[in-house]
Design a protein around this nucleic acid. Structure first.
Length: 515
RNA sequence: GGCAGUGUAGCUCAGCUGGUUAGAGCGUGGCACUCAUAAUGCCAAGGUCGGUGGUUCGAGCCCACUCACUGCUACCA
């Protein structure tokens, strides 16, 4: 009975090309998924695109193509982004996938059987221009008798037949859920949701008749399911719902939904209520991460500062961006980036600290130890202290990962990288080469062994370079799990090593290029 | 307006249930070394811990007030 771990990201709405914010969420979730695999879990990692809705339908019409053709093109871009950032999805789900329709309709029927869905009318002040309903309090009555919405656009009274979900019946159960553990993280998001739910819940409109690009409501084709039923259900579609006894059913309930903080409510209120209604287990946790800002400002089309993830990868590299964002931004908080910050961080941590450490030590091994794992002599206190720090990493990392503190994991690892550089300088193996070659070998062995542990531990974050580092140390493919990051799997002296190669080139800013 | 949160070195942040000289990384200045990707190491400067007033033998950490900033306050996602 192996340990299982099911992690999802939000599915993206493809009404435009992906931006770096989409990539950020996915790379963080990917690092978590990879970390759990590294730690011996049977992981299922789900991401995808949310493809229905009025906006897609309209955009497709504008281009004179079908909605499906429209989303096919954009969904492909999101999938390409996954490849560009080395994302290890186990499935890339699309809400236009056949099994998803089946899952949504099954969920709907269960909720209906429970008596939680009823047909009624949704009425309110609607702004055609904003495509949004406004609360009466948000509107203002003009002298000429017309009424304007929150954005200053005209609104009209609209009544539409719609199905409602009896969300109001779930207030107490939801509050009990929030009370029982850490269903919502981080804490600040939890506070917001709790206060929202305590304020009282209204029933939720869950169908539309004004467009048809969506999943039909079972038994009433005039209606399609509205956003959240359709979108959220993807998480159980991924587990094979309604057949949770099938091959993937074992993954449900999900361990964590990684989402942007802006959609916390939908995941922490509506979603568990739907599931409770349908008699399906609720996910274990919803984690709302922060936003990535560019130079401290939100990125938007109007500001013209949207950062293209593909361009960034081309310029800096996938490992570099992954490392930067996960190290620099405490996971859960907002964070800002600039090209200069990326260059500084990448050069300092990856090129200078880790890359150069590997290079300086392994090139000595190559030249002075016959290109073999050096001989390990009696260990000094300094050797012992450094090795202990390295071997302590798995436990420290697991602790930090318990709160999905990706930055904390990297912090701990790079503390050891720093320790190793200090150790290397203090032991000065280049001097020992002349005075005490045996001791030199020991120092090089300790350094290489620590690099082995670092290589193992960094795999979730820099999945391109970490395996290369392990290759340089001739670590077998099957000995690269976290369980191997201990002394019983240490490097064996005498094993042949390949010639060292640079792991991370320094990023050089060309003259005249602003950073 | 209501609720919640944040404010600690130039920058980004740690600071456990209050307890000797408030920490890290980056940046800055100086020195050392030469194995290495002009990389690394050492040393140093630098903060009245937003402000005021309390509680306490003692507060960055507790209380009150105050200033600034942020988020949430339902059906665009």
């Amino acid at each position: 009975m192996s340990k299982r771990f099911y992690i999802t990201t939000a599915i993206d709405y493809p009404n435009g090309s992906p931006h770096i914010g989409h990539a950020y969420e996915k790379m963080c979730a990917d690092a978590i998924a990879r970390f759990k695999r590294l730690d011996g879990f049977d992981v299922f990692f789900l991401s995808g695109t949310d493809e229905h809705g009025q906006k897609v339908q309209r955009n497709a019409e504008k281009q004179g193509i079908t909605p499906k053709e429209f989303v096919d093109g954009l969904s492909a871009q999101f999938r390409a982004m996954g490849e560009a950032f080395d994302l290890s999805y186990d499935r890339f789900i699309r809400t236009t996938d056949e099994d998803h329709t089946h899952a949504c309709q099954a969920l709907w029927k269960r909720m209906e059987e429970k008596g939680d869905i009823y047909l009624s009318k949704y009425a309110g002040w609607y702004s055609v221009r904003d495509e949004a309903f406004y609360d009466e309090a948000e509107t203002t009555l003009q002298p000429d008798g017309t009424r304007l919405g929150g954005q200053g656009t005209p609104v009209e009274w609209v009544e539409e037949e719609t199905y409602f979900f009896r969300l109001s019946a779930y207030q107490d159960k939801l509050l009990a859920l929030y009370d029982s553990g850490n269903f919502i993280a981080p804490q600040t998001r939890r506070n917001e949701v709790v206060s929202f739910v305590k304020g009282g819940l209204q029933d939720l409109s869950i169908s539309r008749t004004t467009f048809d690009w969506g999943i039909p409501v079972p038994g009433n084709d005039k209606h399609v399911m509205y956003v959240w039923i359709d979108a959220l259900t993807n998480y159980i579609t991924g587990a094979g719902y309604p057949d949770l006894d099938g091959p993937r059913g074992k993954y449900w309930p999900a361990d964590v939904h990684i989402i942007g903080k802006d959609i916390t409510r939908f995941h922490a209120v509506y979603w568990p209520a739907f599931l409770m209604s349908a008699g399906v287990a609720v996910p274990k946790q919803v984690f709302g991460h922060g936003f990535v800002l560019f130079k401290g400002e939100k990125m938007s089309k109007s500001l013209g500062n949207v950062q293209d993830p593909f361009e960034l990868v081309k310029r800096f590299g996938a490992d570099q961006l992954r490392y930067f964002f996960m190290r620099e931004i405490p996971f859960g908080q907002d964070g800002s980036f600039t090209e200069e910050a990326i260059i500084n961080r990448v050069n300092a941590d990856l090129a200078n600290d880790l890359g150069n450490l590997a290079q300086r030590s392994l090139s000595m091994v190559n030249k002075n130890c016959d290109a073999k794992v050096p001989a390990k002599g009696a260990l000094s206190d300094e050797d012992r202290a450094l090795l202990d720090a390295a071997y302590a990493l798995p436990a420290e990392a697991r602790t930090a990962m318990g709160d999905y503190a990706l930055h904390g994991v990297l912090n701990a690892i790079w503390k050891v990288v720093g320790d190793t550089n200090r150790y290397f300088a203090a032991q000065a193996p280049w001097a020992l080469r002349k005075t005490d070659p045996q001791r030199m070998e020991s120092v090089l062995w300790v350094t290489a062994e620590v690099l082995r542990v670092i290589g193992i531990m960094t795999q979730p974050f820099i999945p391109g370079a970490a395996p290369k580092l392990l290759d340089l140390l001739a670590v077998a493919e099957e000995k690269r799990l976290m369980a191997h990051a201990e002394s019983s799997h240490a490097l064996v002296p005498g094993v042949e090593l390949p010639a060292p190669q640079g792991l991370f080139p320094r990023i050089v800013v060309e003259a005249g290029e602003g950073a």
